[in-house]
């Protein structure tokens, strides 16, 4: 049973509870043990790196120092947290002059921690093969999905170490292996506007409208993501954005772990899907999935 360090991040305790539950459910089904970092702290998100560089680095350094004491790698489900932790690690390789003594006292070792985004971890050839082997024979081909990776998990490549940062393939391959009809599209890593949804929702609406339009043009009937910020921005305001577009939009925004839950036949999957604002009920019914996956949504 592989054991990894796990950094859930603040959103997964609230807005992205569906993501948190599906991550735990899927990892349990695949015998991957998630060891949550003891007493982890917020990554600082956009706020810290925007207003206080020193704080941003230290918030990352503390989590990395905690991770240095646990199993490797450190797996992170939220793309923004992942980016902040990987950026801190990248910067700490240059030196830790800005790190405060209270955090240095945790024992250092932070620059050596391997930070991995959850969707990369779960779409590795090994895990994909395992998921395929344990999957039920449920036919998921009625799900016509575009995979939306977002920006923070990919860029900049000097920090993420990724080779296919302009056109990532991990989720496409994983979902394809599970029988989902995966549609190619050019907006895999385009920005959703992230935390601007609060102070400048108009910007997020403009960016998300472009994503909806392209996804629909591509023939998709759902969007699958591995980032909780993208999920929130695409799921929470869909009705309002569609009204502004003057268009009918019905695009449930699923976490890739929820789709894995369907494929693996995990009973709790409908409980996760029920937390979405755009109900996946119509999608699953039309995709001819068994009644028990959607009747209570």
């Amino acid at each position: 049973m592989p054991e990894v360090s796990y950094y859930p991040g603040c959103s997964l305790e609230a807005t992205a509870k569906d993501y948190a539950e599906s991550v735990e459910g899927v990892c349990e089904a695949l015998d991957i043990e998630l060891r949550e970092l003891p007493d982890w702290n917020c990554c600082g998100a956009s706020a810290a790196h925007s207003l206080d560089h020193r704080a941003a680095l230290n918030l990352g350094a503390r989590n990395l120092a905690l991770a240095a004491q646990g199993p490797s790698p450190l797996v992170v489900p939220c793309a923004l947290c992942y980016n902040r932790l990987a950026s801190a690690r990248h910067e700490l390789l240059e030196g830790d002059d800005l790190v405060i003594d209270e955090i240095k006292a945790l024992g250092g070792g932070y620059a050596g921690v391997e930070v991995v985004e959850l969707n990369d971890y779960l779409s590795s050839p090994e895990v994909t093969a395992l998921a395929k082997q344990r999957a039920t024979d449920l036919d998921l081909s009625g799900l016509k999905a575009v995979c939306y990776y977002g920006c923070q998990g990919q860029r900049p490549p000097a920090v993420t170490g990724k080779a296919d940062y302009e056109n990532p393939q991990g989720l496409d391959r994983l979902l394809g292996a599970l029988g989902v009809t995966v549609m190619d599209w050019p907006f895999k890593t385009d920005c959703c506007g992230a935390s601007h949804s609060v102070p400048r929702p108009d910007l997020v609406f403009t960016l998300v409208a472009k994503l909806y339009k392209r996804a629909l043009d591509q023939g998709a009937n759902c969007i699958v993501t591995g980032c909780q910020m993208c999920q929130a921005n695409l799921d929470m305001y869909q009705e309002e954005i569609a009204k502004q577009m003057g268009k009918q939009v019905y695009l449930p925004v699923l976490y890739f772990t929820e789709v894995m839950g369907l494929a693996l036949g995990i009973d709790e999957t409908p409980k996760w899907l029920k937390r979405h604002l755009v109900s996946p009920k119509g999608l699953l019914e039309k995709a001819q999935l068994p009644r028990q996956t959607w009747e209570r949504l």
Binding site: S46, H49, S50, N83, C151, Q152, Q154, R155, P156, P157, Y165, E166, C191, G193, A194, S195, H196
Partner: peptide, 8 residues
């Protein structure tokens, strides 16, 4: 929004 496209 610090999406890192420019730096990339």
């Amino acid at each position: 929004a610090s999406c890192q496209t420019c730096l990339t």
